[in-house]
Design a protein around this nucleic acid. Structure first.
Lengths: 158, 158
DNA sequence: CTAGGGCGCGAAAGAATCTTGCGCACGGAA
DNA sequence: TTCCGTGCGCAAGATTCTTTCGCGCCCTAG
């Protein structure tokens, strides 16, 4: 697998540009990173094939689409055996309100990033889905008031 | 501003496809949503101009880029005046380790999504940046063990 | 009922981009 | 020095993008 060490300065520039604007044309990208289009496209393909670029996504405006509630849920389970963890992980994948989920260490076992159209829908989810799951012990929710920062996952050194 | 109600079934299909693959060519997109390319491109442009599509982003593989630590921090402040909240929000924007940040209600005031190259770097950040900030009262961290689910922000009805 | 306007689609053509093949330069190893 | 691998840039054909234009549909006012 391609590793960090195999990337040169141009690769990092490519990653930075595509993380900021994933739809940039290859011509524009090549101009910005200082090489011609063909080798630039070859580098992008290599980054995609080796999995360093996992994919591309349009970022949607949740409120404009009628999704007024964004919240995080911290879930504590009663039993944390590998089997039980996997069961809950699979459950999260089946809940459309859950847009992102991580297994975490600390006071909780899972952290869920949730989006819902309104508070009633979110509360129903918490009560009917989360709380009702047998192995769920604690549910702490944090409703987001405003998004403060939202950048790509990886900091690209200048 | 364009609202949810102004979107028809084809617009929703476009949003779903671009949320899954933001680099899809317009020809392929138009084929998938069942219209020809020109009106499809007009719809995409309209969704971009009205802010329903906020942008596009390449999704990077953090571990492959040497970012082995992904964590969330729940921050409680001593004082929550609008001024103090804004001060802390601005601070988060200046910390490269913080990739996403939300102001939240509940037991904490902010939730930070952090990515660092190693545990030592992350711990230094917590101690030297977070804990050292005068108005910071409590810092609870949750190190992620594995990512369970990572989809687009908005569920697109089928 | 009918005429007119607005809206969105599809076809076509020119412009831009993508993609491939090829030759060349540079750098390390025998 | 010579050979070889790597990566660049150039150029050409294929694909895609983008604009323009005309058509049909629906809604509404007369």
């Amino acid at each position: 697998m391609l590793q960090k060490a195999d990337l040169d300065a141009i690769d990092w520039k490519i990653l930075r540009e595509l993380q900021e604007d994933g739809r940039m044309t290859n011509v524009e990208l090549s101009r910005r990173v200082g090489i011609s289009a063909p080798p630039c496209l070859r580098r992008v393909r290599r980054l995609e094939e080796t999995g360093i670029i996992r994919g591309y996504r349009a970022l949607l405006n949740a409120p404009a689409l009628g999704m007024d509630v964004v919240a995080f849920c911290l879930i504590g389970l009663k039993h944390q055996s590998e089997t039980e963890l996997k069961v809950f992980a699979d459950l999260t994948r089946g809940w459309p309100i859950v847009r992102g989920a991580w297994m975490v260490s600390g006071e909780s076992d899972f952290l869920l990033h949730c989006v819902a159209s309104d508070l009633a829908t979110f509360q129903s989810f918490v009560i009917e889905a989360l709380t009702s799951t047998p192995n769920v012990d604690t549910v702490r929710t944090a409703l987001t008031i405003r998004k403060v920062k939202d950048e790509g996952l990886v900091e690209i050194p200048a």
